[in-house]
Simulated assay, not measured.
Amino acid sequence: MKGGAAAVLWQLWLVVVLMWFCCRRRGKKEKIECQGGVYVLESEKAWSTQNVIRKWVDLMLPLVLRGSQRGLLIWDSASTHRAKDMKNFLAERRVDQVMIPAGMTAYLQTLDIAINKPFKDYLRLEINDYIENRMSRNKNNNFVKPNLQEVVSWVRNAWGKVTDSCVAKALKAGYLDKTSPFEASYIAKHDRLEPMILKELESNEILAGIQGLDLEENDDIPEDDDLIVFE
């Protein structure tokens, strides 16, 4: 895997873990900790709250940003993301946002398009295997809930089965890989937006071509004295 794709894979790994593993014990830890290669944040409910997102941003961005670089978050228009406090929080950290419009997740949200589904399927297999083969009972014959290390192993094993080709497919489908044609993206399948986007892309190509012309080297343009006027 190329370096850039590897970095993207690592970033997606962290995003998926935080979205899927918020421990439901009464919150004991106030910061994200690494447990067996999995980043864990405990919260009372497994929701992506502003508190969770802020901790993720403060952990993640220093690892991918360098120097004066700005950050960019592409995510849906959930109320948590649109909140004024969240916008101010990101602005202070030089992070810009791009909101995916409602109803466009299936076309533009890269994780949902080609990453989350196989990850969820693999995670379900891990859970089923635990229930069928390793789940124990207490003295009252009630099932004992899995410990943190067990759950971490599910997440790690499930993510390990998400291949490089799966990530590459997601980048193409979300039109984040500009080396792939627009036709390979999911948004190209949208009946109303596809022609509008194609028209915009073509206009940008024409403009770029005009800006790239070096008219000073064109000796075929006649001077005013050479013009012949027919009346």
Rank of each mutant, 00 (worst) to 15 (best):
T80E: 04
W75R: 06
R93I: 03
N141Y: 09
E150P: 04
D121I: 08
Y122H: 14
T110C: 14
A46M: 07
R94K: 12
E126M: 03
D121E: 13
V16R: 08
E223V: 02
K120P: 10
K172Y: 00
D76A: 02
S68V: 09
E132Y: 05
D58T: 12
I113G: 00
D214S: 13
Y175N: 07
I115W: 03
M19L: 15
V144D: 00
D121L: 09
I32R: 05
T80H: 06
P181Q: 09
W10E: 15
P146Y: 00
K169N: 11
E202K: 08
P181C: 11
L125T: 10
F21M: 13
V57L: 09
S165D: 14
N88S: 12
R192D: 14
P195G: 07
T179I: 07
V155I: 11
V152I: 09
R70T: 07
G4L: 11
L213G: 07
I100C: 00
L72K: 03
M99A: 02
N218E: 10
A188C: 05
Q11A: 15
N141T: 09
G160A: 03
E202H: 13
L9Y: 15
P222W: 02
A158K: 04
E33H: 06
T49M: 00
L73D: 03
G209H: 06
E217Y: 11
L201Q: 04
V229A: 01
A102D: 01
T80Q: 05
G27D: 11
